[in-house]
Design a protein around this nucleic acid. Structure first.
Length: 514
RNA sequence: GGCGGCGUAGCUCAGUUGGUUAGAGCACGCGGCUCAUAUCCGCGGAGUCGUAGGUUCAAGUCCUACCGCCGCCA
């Protein structure tokens, strides 16, 4: 198959700071990107995120703060960027739709569709919701012409606008989805998309008159108009990498994975493909659709105030903790639930007790009995326990990456924890601390510890897509270089290798007693 | 109104093309160990698998209806 990948998150609308839900998307995409990088090599994977900064809502939000739109989005975009940095989201591109490079690219794409005859002008009168930034038909609205998502009356607006032909490409998009069963993942969303595409589609209004809204990219063929924010934002998936790499569009973009939330399935399954086709571009590889992350059982929303700030959780519990929780607990594609209580449960049970304590006991014994030095290489000496350990750790990374490839992040982590279970059991079965009391049995103790240290090494490496900081910390404690870190089980650590003393990776969180 | 999803132990969920006493983690109880972050290992209790029918030698797993929750489309 293809050996280069392009992975994107949605381009986040910049009118409010990120919450745990947007963080989840960035983290899932990041785990996917990191997993693919270790399979294909760093240079073959590009990972893109960014902020969507045009449109009426942003202009209004900026106005409310008494500042120009660009100044407003400079600030909000930086908040996203810092949040992603704080969560160790390893993007290669952070695109802002206000980047000059992006704006030029969008104009090129508009010109292409225009010259192909896919963009036409039409007088239009309709009911417009400012919050949604779109027109509605009366059937879609609640009584008294109230917008169903914003619960606000819509405005009747009459104006000339430019439209992009959508229905022209409908059959082609349907055929593509049918010929590529995993084009939209998971399946449930594929069916919904096909449903949406089953009937004729209205063309997409892609302009706004400057008289009403100036905050946007000017149309290359009519300076009285700017482009609609949604048309603009999609191209952020392409603009920056295409500008940097001339071969991007033909060689890399066809194997793009778009990570999106289920709320924007329609725009990505129905409107984005015709936009691409009309501009003469190929379609992407996967649309990877996730559900909501609820908060304490309730839908997170700014209006109800139950919005969890992702960065504060990393700050409070340590690096990788929110990453672990979301990737372990949420099934990709289904709705999940986030709560501090469950986060602490997971932290203590999985991170402190299983992973942290395992690390601690292995390194402590290595230090206590051999001054931290491995006197032999890992090997299967005693058939039963040694072989069980080798079986649990063998091909672990490959198995994890295979799960991630299908977006089963939770199963990838489960596989690592199953290996940890076996490793903890191995200590009880072999009881090196008992053998160590007998001088004659020290060689066997050394062998057991070499095997355990090797197991820890593989676990540390396997964790990287999900918990990059913890992975690094474990590998640093083991003092292994990059090549040894990535070796198959049994071939990483050598005799004579020196490891560092234990330190607690995840101190237990004691329940607060009031 | 149409289409689709979900409903399995106290909690969160797995359950392949229908096939032996329905599984895991957490929580809880008992036992063991002491290298380790009072951690680890073993054992255990608990479920009429939403309801009612049906197909089958055999159904959580297929069919029908209904109830409840949710999503998409109209």
């Amino acid at each position: 198959m293809t050996d280069r990948l392009h992975i994107t998150t949605a381009i986040f609308y910049c009118n409010a700071p990120p919450h745990v839900g947007s963080a989840y998307e960035a983290l899932a995409a990041d785990a996917y990107a990191r997993s693919q990088r270790r399979r294909l090599g760093r240079a073959r994977v590009s990972f893109l995120t960014g902020t969507d900064e045009h449109g009426d809502k942003i202009r209004r939000a900026a106005e409310a703060e008494g500042m120009p739109p660009k100044e407003f989005t400079d600030r909000t975009s930086a908040v996203f960027r810092r949040a992603w940095d704080g969560l160790h989201v390893s993007y290669d591109y952070f695109v802002r739709t206000t980047d000059p490079q992006h704006e030029q690219f969008v104009q090129q794409m508009l010109a292409r569709s225009h010259s192909r005859g896919d963009i036409y002008f039409k007088d239009y009168e309709g009911l417009y919701c400012v919050g949604c930034e779109r027109f509605y038909t009366e059937k879609e609205l609640l009584p008294a012409n109230v917008c169903p998502t914003h619960n606000q009356p819509v405005e009747r607006i009459s104006e000339g606008n430019y439209f992009l032909r959508i229905d022209k490409y409908r059959a082609q998009v349907v055929e593509h989805i049918q010929r590529h069963p995993d084009f939209i993942r998971p399946d449930r969303y594929r069916n919904e998309a096909l449903n949406m595409l089953a009937e004729p589609l209205a063309d997409l209004c892609i302009s706004r008159p400057k008289a009403r809204l100036e905050w946007g990219i000017e149309l290359p063929f009519d300076s009285n108009y700017v482009t609609y924010v949604w048309y603009d934002a999609f191209w952020a998936y392409v603009s920056a990498p295409a500008s940097r790499d001339p071969g991007f569009i033909t060689e890399v973009f066809p194997s793009a994975d778009h990570f999106i939330g289920k709320d924007i399935l329609k725009t990505h399954a129905v409107y984005w493909p015709p936009m691409l086709l009309s501009a003469g571009l190929p379609l992407f590889r996967h649309l990877d659709v996730h559900g909501w992350v609820n908060f304490g059982g309730q839908r997170m929303s700014k209006s109800s105030g139950n919005v969890a700030d992702p960065v504060s959780y990393e700050a409070a519990f340590g690096p990788d903790v929110l990453r672990y929780f979301l990737l372990r607990e949420v099934v990709y594609g289904l709705d999940g639930d986030f709560s501090e209580e469950r986060l602490i449960e997971r932290y203590n049970a999985d991170l402190a007790n299983d992973l942290g304590n395992f690390t601690s006991r292995v390194l402590s014994m290595a230090a206590r009995y051999f001054g931290g030095q491995l006197t032999c290489a890992p090997a299967v000496e005693d058939d039963a326990p040694d072989a069980a350990l080798a079986a649990a750790l063998g091909q672990l990374v490959e198995r994890v990456d295979a799960q991630v490839e299908t977006l089963a992040f939770n199963r990838g982590l489960e596989a690592i924890w199953q290996a940890l279970d076996v490793a903890n059991k191995y200590i009880v079965q072999t009881a090196p601390f008992t053998l160590a009391k007998d001088q004659a049995k020290l060689p066997r103790v050394a062998q057991i510890l070499a095997n355990l240290t090797e197991a820890l090494r593989v676990v540390g490496y396997a964790l990287d897509p999900f918990m990059p900081v913890t992975s690094r910390r474990i590998l640093d404690l083991l003092a292994v270089d990059q090549a040894a870190a990535a070796a198959p089980y049994g071939q990483g650590l050598k005799a004579g290798h020196q490891v560092n003393p234990a330190s607690a990776l995840f101190p237990r969180i004691e329940k607060k007693v009031r």
